[in-house]
């Protein structure tokens, strides 16, 4: 896979100027060292697990060494060798000290060129785009280009989990950068996507972004419906019993009170926050909001509208 704005010949410069044979020799030496050191001659899958463990623990030099050794010792095209290639690319991409994006991109490209049908190909393509999204912090990011890159990936690998990630990242950026008219177009696109993909794994975050798009175009009722939908479709991790919903409750209540004027919904979610998260630091403000809405309603009934240009007070 190629992107129009690729740095010229990055892949070629690495994989040709540092000849494949040289890399293989280095890997072979690594393999011999590993073989000599590994207690009881550990099987390749155990070494692969170890390399990923080292990667997770930020032991990038160790992980790289093992990934290279595995590439050299396994038959070309073997699943373990491909994963080791991907692992090595990940090491160069994600290490904080000595990060080498060009090297990572070259390895992702090697995987995409040599193993286009590998299950890792979509992930390599995604990570390749992510190298530009997560460019060094002192570099500016070309967001419009990034949006196009994610879209290209979605077209190239439709229906894959990597494409689902790309869609989320793209929509997130696009809605943040959109004006009201663009937000309306994006809202339609998100709604169509969710309708076409009932099993969408990112349904909840996409509904939250949809709510933002509706807010930008001034459709507050649809914004509230999307926020509630996002809450209801949240994917909670069964191994993590702490389901932090207080912020979602607060967001809905805030939008309902100040942007939509839907006090019934605002009250419902402030009360939920108080019931389920009584020790939350916003519980006090939720209580005050309930009192404020009572007062505003009473004032409106008495013919006194609250001013739109003044911050709503917190009742004493």
């Amino acid at each position: 896979m190629r992107f129009r704005h690729d740095p010229p010949n990055v892949h070629a410069s690495i994989s040709r100027s540092v000849p494949e044979a040289l890399r293989r020799v280095a890997g072979l030496i690594g393999a011999l060292v590993l073989g000599a050191c590994a207690p009881g001659g550990r099987p390749p899958d155990a070494l692969l697990r170890q390399a990923w463990e080292d990667y997770r623990n930020s032991e990038f030099a160790l992980a790289t060494q093992t990934f290279r050794a595995l590439q050299a010792s396994q038959p070309a095209g073997a699943e373990i060798a491909v994963e080791a290639l991907y692992g090595e690319a990940s090491c160069w991409n994600h290490r904080r000290s000595g990060r080498n994006i060009a090297k990572a991109v070259a390895l992702y490209d090697a995987l995409l060129d040599q193993h286009p049908d590998s299950p890792l190909a979509p992930w390599a393509a995604l990570d390749r785009v992510r190298t530009r999204h997560l460019a060094p912090a002192d570099q500016d990011i070309d967001f419009p280009q990034l949006i196009q890159d994610y879209a290209a990936l979605e077209r190239r690998y439709p229906g894959t989990p990597a494409a689902a990630d790309a869609f989320l990242y793209r929509i997130r950026l696009a809605v943040s950068l959109a004006d009201a008219a663009q937000a309306a177009v994006l809202a339609t696109e998100i709604e169509a996507h969710l309708a076409a993909h009932p099993e969408e794994p990112y349904r909840s975050p996409l509904l939250k972004i949809l709510a933002e798009a509706h807010h930008k175009r001034g459709a507050e009722d649809r914004r509230l419906a999307s926020l509630v939908g996002a809450l209801e479709s949240r994917e909670d991790d069964p191994s993590t019993p702490f389901f932090e919903r207080s912020t979602a409750y607060w967001e809905i209540a805030y939008a309902a009170e100040f942007d939509a004027g839907d006090f019934a919904l605002a009250r419902k979610f402030h009360r939920l926050l108080l019931e389920e998260f009584p020790n939350d630091d916003r519980a006090f403000a939720a209580e005050k909001a309930l009192a404020r809405m009572d007062r505003v309603e009473a004032d409106v009934r008495a013919g006194r509208m609250p001013p739109a240009d003044r911050i709503a007070p917190s009742p004493q």
């Binding site: 001034g218 507050e220 009170e257 100040f258 942007d259 939509a260 004027g261 839907d262 006090f263 019934a264 505003v296 309603e297 409106v300 009934r301 509208m305 609250p306 739109a308 240009d309 003044r310 911050i311 709503a312």
Partner: peptide
């Protein structure tokens, strides 16, 4: 924390 004009309209309608 300011009521939007649309919110105020809605509040007035509901509280009437």
């Amino acid at each position: 924390y300011q009521y939007s004009p649309a919110a105020l309209e809605n509040i007035a309608r509901q509280a009437a």
